[in-house]
Simulated assay, not measured.
Amino acid sequence: MTFYPNERIGLFIDGANLYSAARALDFDIDYRKLLEEFKKRGRLVRANYYTALLENDDYTPIRPLVDWLDYNGFAIVTKAAREYTDEHGRRRIKGDMDVEIAVDVLESASYLDHILLFSGDGDFRKVVEAVQRRGVRVSVVSTLKSQPPMIADDLRRQADNFIELAELGRLVGRERRAREDFAPAASSDDDDA
């Protein structure tokens, strides 16, 4: 990872995608360590965490994480998840945050030097290309080491730098908990990765 001491850095975390990738690698993200790691690497200007929440549930497993992140330096971007039943009668949750992430990444190109996108979703390739044309470096954080890999090949190739989550996990990971307390409530069913 190449960082410059005075560059303005922004983290854009697709919560459901990062959770799935870390889970596939059998560790949890320690978000305090994650913030500290990138504060050491430049001027951390923005740290956004995106997730969909089930609004009608009395308790959602991700709420404690979202509350902690909100009080500890992250900007939380949420929207209501939609619940539906699939063709096999299973309860499914849909909460795609791609548009919110893409708009925020585009807007941040005017005040950031380096964007770190924590997602392997190939839908982000075009927004990565757009901010690169504005002179912003983009690093994508995901994994090739899971089965199947969680990073879309075209997104990895478009990025200025690919950061393997398994390697970053040595700095910002912790052993997985037995309980699923901090599991994101929603994930996109149509991710390209």
Rank of each mutant, 00 (worst) to 15 (best):
G73Y: 14
R174K: 15
D30M: 09
V128R: 01
I76S: 14
D154C: 01
Y50F: 09
R8H: 13
P184M: 10
G135I: 09
M1G: 05
S188H: 10
V138C: 04
D57E: 07
V45F: 10
A16Y: 04
L65P: 04
V99W: 11
G120A: 12
K40A: 15
D70C: 06
K145E: 08
E129A: 10
R176N: 04
S146V: 04
V66N: 02
L54P: 02
D30T: 05
E36Q: 15
V99K: 12
L54I: 12
D190Y: 14
D189P: 11
I93Q: 11
F38Q: 06
R82F: 09
G120S: 14
A22K: 00
L116I: 15
D86C: 10
G42F: 15
Y111P: 05
G89P: 13
G15E: 05
D123E: 08
L106P: 00
I101V: 03
D121T: 13
L54K: 11
D123A: 06
V128N: 01
D154N: 13
N56K: 08
G122A: 07
R177N: 04
M1K: 15
T2C: 10
T85S: 13
A183P: 02
R32S: 10
E37V: 04
L117Y: 00
D190I: 15
Y84N: 08
I76M: 12
I163W: 02
A159M: 01
S119H: 04
T143I: 15
T51I: 11
D189G: 12
R32L: 09
R133H: 11
E175R: 11
M1D: 03
G122S: 08
D189S: 10
P5M: 11
R92Q: 10
A193S: 15
F74T: 03
K33C: 03
S108N: 08
P64Y: 08
G95Q: 04
R176L: 15
A166E: 02
N56L: 08
S108H: 02
T51P: 07
I9A: 04
K33E: 05
W68E: 10
G122F: 12
H88M: 05
H88T: 06
P5E: 14
A185K: 02
G73A: 14
R125M: 02
L117R: 01
D190T: 13
D191P: 03
S146D: 07
R8E: 10
D30E: 09
D30I: 02
Y49Q: 03
L53D: 06
L18V: 13
D104V: 01
E100V: 02
V103Y: 05
G73C: 13
R63C: 04
N6M: 14
D98K: 11
A16Q: 02
F12P: 00
L165Q: 00
R41W: 07
D30Q: 07
S20H: 05
V103I: 09
